[in-house]
Amino acid sequence: MYHSVATSSTPAFSDFVVSPERFETQIHALAVAGFTSITMSHLAAARAAGVALPEKTIALTFDDGFLDFAENALPILQAHDFTATLYMTTRFIGGRSRWLAPEGEADRPMLSWADLETLAAGGVEVGAHSDTHPQLDLLAPQVLARELMVPKVTLEDRLGVPVTSMAYPFGYSTREVRQMTAHLGYTNGCVVSDVVSSGDDHPYSTPRLTVTGSHSAADVVLMSGRASTRQERTKALLRHHASRGLRRAGLKKKESAALSRSLR
């Protein structure tokens, strides 16, 4: 899982930014190691049908929808015959990343509708990442439904392609979030557990590995090429729940109301 492929960031957002040079070495190393890529919905469909995929199959995902995906990441992916799934935060298409104001990143340019039309026509899967990037497990049912439904309907209407994959903002979900995701017509949903996904994973709780600018090419190949142990999965689940609880408490006390008002 990637976010931004760019040359600069604020300190608070640096873990989510990989330089184009580092990204190129990571993707090149995956290609040399024999990996091939598919979209998240292709992965979900193959698993649902019981179709075995080649051992070195990966799904590359990019959250948020920053303009640097088209400018910096896509040419590198295309040079190695890799595809990707791009998760869009629809309220900010053609604008700036205003939800990242707490990290000092409110001005990062976002992809436009023209960009998305070109990407979708070129084989990049466009998925949903909510409308305004809230923590979904904090929302009332009617607000949750809107955050899940608006991006699906908006993207499908504008791009003319099915939108079947959802990446939950911050990687957090609950049973209610996953059930509503399925009810609204998505076929799969992604979390952030930092373990390698396997065929046993629930389609609406597909874990992803976070790739940062500190990961070397060898790190990325190693991360992608081995199955996570049961102990690693347990530890990742505990870390995930702990971070979710801390963020939930912080948002309830400080940020939720202010963020909601600023995005209206």
Score class of each variant (00 low, 15 high):
residue 121 A to W: 11
residue 206 T to W: 08
residue 66 F to S: 05
residue 75 P to K: 14
residue 201 D to K: 07
residue 161 V to G: 12
residue 240 H to D: 13
residue 39 T to A: 14
residue 50 G to F: 11
residue 257 A to L: 08
residue 222 L to K: 06
residue 118 T to L: 05
residue 1 M to H: 14
residue 171 G to N: 04
residue 252 K to L: 07
residue 122 G to K: 08
residue 159 L to I: 10
residue 128 A to N: 04
residue 238 L to A: 10
residue 227 A to Y: 00
residue 128 A to M: 08
residue 79 A to Y: 05
residue 229 T to F: 00
residue 221 V to S: 13
residue 39 T to H: 07
residue 77 L to F: 09
residue 40 M to D: 04
residue 247 R to A: 06
residue 250 G to C: 01
residue 7 T to M: 04
residue 3 H to Q: 09
residue 101 A to S: 08
residue 220 V to T: 10
residue 174 T to Y: 06
residue 260 S to M: 07
residue 175 R to H: 03
residue 252 K to M: 07
residue 88 M to T: 00
residue 193 S to W: 13
residue 214 S to R: 15
residue 203 P to M: 07
residue 263 L to Q: 12
residue 37 S to V: 02
residue 9 S to E: 10
residue 59 A to Y: 02
residue 5 V to Q: 11
residue 130 S to D: 06
residue 116 L to V: 11
residue 219 D to R: 13
residue 47 R to L: 05
residue 164 T to A: 06
residue 249 A to F: 05
residue 12 A to M: 14
residue 188 N to W: 01
residue 48 A to P: 05
residue 253 K to A: 12
residue 143 V to F: 05
residue 212 T to M: 01
residue 122 G to L: 05
residue 148 L to V: 04
residue 16 F to E: 10
residue 94 G to P: 07
residue 46 A to T: 02
residue 246 L to Y: 10
residue 150 V to K: 03
residue 142 Q to A: 12
residue 113 W to H: 08
residue 180 M to N: 02
residue 115 D to R: 08
residue 247 R to W: 06
residue 72 N to R: 11
residue 225 G to E: 04
residue 117 E to D: 13
residue 82 F to V: 08
residue 6 A to E: 12
residue 194 D to E: 14
residue 5 V to R: 10
residue 28 H to R: 15
residue 30 L to R: 12
residue 108 R to E: 09
residue 99 W to A: 09
residue 118 T to H: 08
residue 120 A to G: 09
residue 97 S to M: 01
residue 167 A to R: 05
residue 117 E to L: 06
